Amino acid sequence: SEIVKHAEEALERGEFVRIEHNGRVIEIRNEEALEELRRWVEK
């Protein structure tokens, strides 16, 4: 997914991403959060 790709690229640069999706906000700061995002987006 485009969202996950964006988050992965930001993590590689040492940045973090805040994503709003279906009214929820998730902050991607590490691999664990990235995995959570993947599960969340796939639903």
Rank of each mutant, 00 (worst) to 15 (best):
E31N: 11
E36S: 07
I28G: 00
A7C: 08
V4R: 02
G23M: 02
E32V: 08
A7H: 01
G23F: 04
R18W: 13
A33G: 13
E8C: 09
A10W: 05
R13N: 06
E8K: 15
F16V: 14
R24S: 08
K5G: 04
E32F: 09
S1E: 12
I28S: 00
V17H: 05
E36Y: 09
W40E: 07
W40D: 04
R24V: 12
E8W: 12
E27D: 11
E20V: 14
S1F: 14
E2W: 15
I26A: 01
E15L: 07
E9Q: 13
L37I: 04
S1W: 15
E27M: 09
V4L: 15
R24N: 08
H21I: 15
E35H: 07
A7M: 04
E35K: 07
R24C: 09
E8S: 12
R29T: 14
E9V: 07
W40T: 03
E35C: 05
N30E: 04
R29P: 04
N22G: 10
F16L: 09
L37N: 00
R39C: 10
E12F: 12
E12H: 15
H6V: 13
A10Y: 06
L34D: 01
I3L: 15
E20R: 10
K5A: 09
S1C: 10
V25H: 06
N30S: 12
L11I: 07
R38Y: 05
A10N: 03
I26F: 15
I26D: 01
E9L: 13
A10P: 01
E8R: 14
I26H: 08
R29S: 11
R38G: 03
E15M: 07
G23V: 00
E2D: 14
E2R: 06
E20T: 11
E15I: 10
A10S: 08
K5V: 06
K5Y: 04
G23N: 06
K5S: 06
V25S: 05
E32G: 08
E31R: 15
I28W: 01
G14T: 01
R39V: 10
A33L: 09
V17K: 03
K43C: 07
E15S: 09
R24I: 13
E20S: 09
H6P: 02
E42W: 08
R29M: 12
E31K: 15
R13F: 02
E32I: 08
E36H: 07
R39A: 14
E20A: 08
E2Q: 13
N22V: 06
A7T: 03
G14V: 02
H21P: 00
E42M: 11
S1K: 14
E35I: 07
H6Y: 15
K5Q: 09
E12N: 14
E8A: 14
N22F: 13
H21S: 07
R18A: 10
N22K: 11
K5E: 05
E36M: 10
I19G: 00
G23R: 00
I19M: 05
E36L: 10
R38A: 05
R29K: 12
V41G: 02
E42S: 11
R38V: 06
H6C: 10
E8H: 10
R18N: 07
E9H: 08
W40H: 05
F16C: 12
I19A: 04
R24F: 14
V17D: 02
K5M: 07
V4F: 10
V4E: 01
R13P: 00
W40A: 07
E9M: 12
E15C: 09
K43Q: 14
A33K: 06
E32D: 11
K43T: 12
V25G: 02
E31C: 11
V4S: 02
I19R: 00
F16N: 06
W40R: 04
